[in-house]
Simulated assay, not measured.
Amino acid sequence: MTYNRLLDALSAESYERLRPHLIPIHLTQGTSLHLPGDNIKYLYFPIDCLLSIITIMEDGATMESGIVGNQDVLGVSAFMSGSLPIRTEHVVQIAGTALKIDAEIFRRIFIQDQLLRQFFLKYTQAFIAQISQTSACNRLHSLEQRLCRWLLEAQARTESDHIELTQQFLAQMLGVRRAGVTQAAQKLQDNGLISYSRGHINVCDRPGLEANACECYRIVQEEYERLLFKK
């Protein structure tokens, strides 16, 4: 078991093709793995870290457009579009461990192994669903609902109730002012759903978070399960 759900869901034969090329790595919070204009040199399979795909506007404003954890891989464009440069920034949001693999090696195995190729094409469909749902969520739902969704995503993808993340960084991910995140987080804490101190958030009541979140978290999780993990 690698504790990355994608790798664990592969056939034994497909995983053995990848295994010799997977390199364990520790990722530090705030590190930029790729910048706009970069070519993808490595793909990353998170184990207990959390990565963000960040869209940057011309005025410098930022918004998280995708979240990558232990049921994901960072670097889809490496096998979907080859060596074309990306237009987003990829940032380590929560520190932890991952497995990385050279993009050229992964692309070669992707082309050669039909079962692996079919699986990662289904993953790409699930990830596009996540990005699309996140875009709609950012436009249509309240900050409190979006914060609940994000905390559920982070808890599920790191399998930890403890999240080390400053409110300033979280505000950048959600595309809002820090004061808004502070107010929303305080309301969640007053209702016993989370506890937080400087740089630390603890999920105290996951069912309560689910009840206060919008439908977006559930919809995305159901799509991942349907496409990738349903037995």
Rank of each mutant, 00 (worst) to 15 (best):
L121Y: 00
L121A: 01
L121N: 03
L121R: 02
L121F: 02
K122V: 00
K122R: 15
K122I: 00
K122S: 10
Y123H: 02
Y123G: 00
Y123L: 00
Y123R: 00
Y123D: 02
Y123T: 00
Y123S: 01
T124D: 04
T124Q: 03
T124Y: 09
Q125M: 12
Q125L: 15
Q125G: 08
Q125H: 10
A126H: 00
A126E: 02
A126Q: 01
A126M: 02
F127M: 00
F127I: 00
F127Q: 01
F127S: 02
F127K: 01
I128Q: 08
I128T: 09
A129M: 07
A129Y: 11
A129N: 07
Q130N: 03
Q130P: 08
Q130C: 03
Q130M: 11
Q130H: 07
I131R: 14
I131Q: 10
I131T: 13
I131A: 10
I131F: 01
I131L: 06
S132M: 08
S132R: 07
S132F: 01
Q133D: 12
Q133M: 06
Q133S: 14
T134K: 07
T134M: 15
T134S: 11
T134N: 13
T134W: 09
T134G: 11
T134R: 11
S135A: 12
S135G: 08
S135I: 02
S135D: 14
S135E: 13
S135N: 11
A136Y: 14
A136E: 15
A136G: 09
A136M: 14
A136N: 13
A136S: 15
A136I: 12
C137R: 11
C137Y: 08
C137N: 15
N138K: 11
N138Q: 10
N138A: 06
N138R: 11
R139G: 08
R139A: 14
R139M: 12
R139P: 07
L140Q: 11
L140P: 06
L140Y: 13
L140I: 13
L140E: 09
H141N: 14
H141V: 09
H141A: 09
H141S: 10
S142K: 06
S142L: 07
S142M: 04
S142E: 07
S142C: 05
S142N: 05
S142T: 15
L143G: 01
L143F: 03
L143D: 01
L143K: 02
L143Q: 01
L143Y: 02
E144I: 10
E144K: 14
E144R: 12
E144T: 12
E144C: 03
E144W: 05
Q145W: 08
R146T: 10
R146L: 07
R146A: 04
R146V: 06
R146C: 08
L147R: 01
L147H: 04
L147E: 05
L147T: 04
L147S: 04
L147V: 08
C148E: 06
C148S: 13
C148I: 05
C148W: 02
C148L: 04
C148R: 00
C148Y: 05
C148D: 07
C148F: 06
R149M: 09
R149V: 13
R149Y: 13
R149E: 15
R149C: 12
R149P: 05
W150L: 11
W150P: 04
W150Y: 13
L151N: 07
L151D: 09
L151F: 03
L151H: 06
L151I: 10
L151A: 07
L152W: 10
L152A: 12
L152G: 12
L152K: 09
